[in-house]
């Protein structure tokens, strides 16, 4: 533990090529890009399937598939293919694939679990399908969708660590470099940094979730029924 502290408090380890600063920047870059791409792909699809009420089996079963496929195996397959020469592409593609299940599932479930009475009332008032979706389903589904984004973000940050095991960038490289030189202090220091980043992302997003006014949370909006405890539980996918 003192070795780890010593490693962390050595200024030279923070700057320069392969320093903590560079690895952290890589980590945040690939995680952010992957989350954006995955959201752009999965959220519209999940929301649309939820609106139609179709494809539920697909939206729910992708999580099971994601759980069975090790991300390390997917990254390794990319790294022995020509994709290995494409910079951060292997990591970003793998992260997008593993961020999609929570996004897709929560978007679908969020829309599906909107009180059917509210949807019928909106239709009875003469709203078109698009209006029902934008004015009723989407606002009511938002908390569940936001939970999905949060799960995906935490997921992506954790999974990006594994990229180091196939030689890609990110904070995990500090850990693998420590293993390569039998430097337990560096291994633990890297692990602490990775764990702190994951906890920070989780904490910040949980806080943001609480600050955002949502249907059923603020005063005067108590009539909108938000499904409680029906969010899809997170599962570990960074194998």
């Amino acid at each position: 533990m003192t070795d780890a502290w010593g490693w962390l408090t050595t200024g030279a380890h923070w700057t320069g090529d392969g320093g903590i600063g560079q690895r952290l920047a890589e980590h945040v870059y690939v995680s952010g890009l992957a989350l954006l791409l995955a959201s752009a792909l999965a959220l519209p699809l999940g929301l649309w399937l939820g609106h139609l009420g179709r494809g539920g089996a697909l939206a729910v079963n992708v999580s099971n598939v994601g759980r069975a496929v090790p991300v390390f195996a997917v990254l390794a397959l990319f790294m022995v293919s020509p994709l290995r020469n494409a910079g951060y592409v292997p990591t970003v593609v793998a992260l997008v694939l593993f961020a999609m299940p929570p996004l897709l599932t929560n978007a679908y479930v969020g829309v599906r679990e909107v009180d059917r009475a509210a949807v019928r009332a909106a239709r009875g008032m003469g709203m078109t399908g698009g209006q029902v979706f934008l004015r009723v389903e989407l606002p009511l589904a938002r908390p569940v969708v936001a939970t999905g984004v949060r799960s995906a973000a935490v997921q992506v940050v954790a999974t990006a660590t594994v990229a180091a095991m196939v030689g890609q960038g990110g904070l995990g490289r500090i850990i693998t470099a420590g293993f390569a030189t039998y430097d337990t202090g560096q291994v633990v220091a890297g692990a602490v940094l990775v764990a702190l980043l994951a906890l920070l992302v989780e904490g910040v997003l949980a806080g943001a979730d609480r600050l955002l006014p949502g249907p059923g949370r603020g005063p005067g909006r108590g009539h909108a029924r938000v499904p409680k405890n029906r969010t899809i539980r997170r599962s570990r996918l960074d194998g």
Partner: peptide
């Protein structure tokens, strides 16, 4: 919440 690689390293 702790990523797997970090867990094993800790």
């Amino acid at each position: 919440t702790i990523p797997s690689l970090a867990m094993f390293s800790l």
